[in-house]
């Protein structure tokens, strides 16, 4: 095969991806950037330079939302990834009977659409409707706690997301675990490794790549948090600027300021790129460190 022919084949393989990437990512991003440099008053567009960005950098609501998804990301890392990993290790260990039943049960919430999940939780968490909250209320002196109040809302969303995604991550980890060669386990056991040590010292380190991938996806997921607060806002007061994504959506489709919405989305896109890029770089650095 000649070099030019090989090149052509390479382009042929990359082509479809590149075309879709351009149409559905690069072009919208470029268009967004362009929109963010304009201002629209009474339907008349005028070039605004970076003034939208200046406003956005001083927009306390936007950065509050950003901090909120940051905290959310940390919490869900512990709950979603953590629980997923614990469940997968338990399922892979010798302690659990009827494994396939548990695998199915834990994965089920993932099959429930996010919209339905948020609605279901909305009902569960209404203080007057949920029997458990009522019971709790009778202990604390009559008034059932309102878990949908603004102070609790973030934790409620973490709970919903955990319920929904922990099983999914468990399935990924479990698949990763079953793919590991059995000889290693055998060797470890021969060396006197207990089941607990096996899980901690052998299985977890060997799952690293899989964990890395899910963490990356969950960083992106956290920054784009939208469905849960959006659905809950129909049931309880939720700030229209609760997450950066919700803010950008409301700004465009509910307040009609597409230019500012584009500005916020562009900043969000850049932060997402930086966060995922940073994470990947950190991993590669660690790999290099190991190798040396």
């Amino acid at each position: 095969m000649t070099a030019s022919k090989r090149k052509r084949t390479a382009y042929l393989f990359v082509g479809p991806f590149l075309a879709l990437f351009t149409v559905f990512f690069l072009f919208p991003l470029g268009y967004e950037l362009r929109l963010s440099l304009f201002r629209n008053v009474m339907g008349v567009n005028s070039f605004a330079g970076l003034s939208n960005y200046r406003l956005a950098f001083h927009d306390a609501a936007f950065w509050h939302g950003m901090a909120r998804v940051g905290l959310f990301g940390l919490l869900q890392l512990i709950t979603v990834q953590g629980l997923g990993l614990v469940f997968a290790l338990l399922l892979d260990g010798p302690w659990i009977k009827a494994k396939s039943v548990f695998r199915l049960i834990y994965l089920l919430p993932y099959a429930v659409p996010g919209v339905i999940a948020a609605l279901m939780w909305g009902f569960l968490l209404a203080p007057g409707l949920d029997p458990m909250l009522k019971l709790l209320g009778s202990v604390t002196g009559g008034v059932a706690p309102n878990l949908l109040a603004s102070g609790f809302l973030l934790y409620v969303i973490v709970a919903i997301v955990t319920w929904e995604w922990a099983g999914y991550n468990m399935t990924l980890y479990y698949a990763g675990l079953t793919a590991l060669p059995l000889e290693i386990y055998e060797a470890a056991r021969l060396d006197g490794c207990t089941e607990f040590q096996l899980a901690l010292r052998i299985k977890v380190p060997m799952l690293q790549t899989m964990v890395g991938l899910t963490v990356l996806l969950s960083i992106i997921g956290a920054l784009q948090l939208f469905t849960e607060p959006y659905i809950l806002s129909g049931i309880t007061p939720v700030s229209p600027t609760y997450t950066p994504n919700l803010y950008a959506y409301n700004m465009g489709f509910n307040y009609g300021n597409f230019n500012y919405a584009a500005t916020l989305s562009f900043i969000l896109a850049m932060i997402t790129l930086a966060a995922t890029g940073g994470f990947l770089w950190l991993r590669s650095q660690r790999g290099r460190f190991r190798a040396s």
């Binding site: 609605l119 909305g122 959006y230």
Partner: peptide
């Protein structure tokens, strides 16, 4: 009902 209320959630108080 909450379903319609939630579906209509876009404009918080629009």
């Amino acid at each position: 009902g909450a379903i319609s209320a939630a579906m209509m959630a876009v404009t918080v108080g629009a």
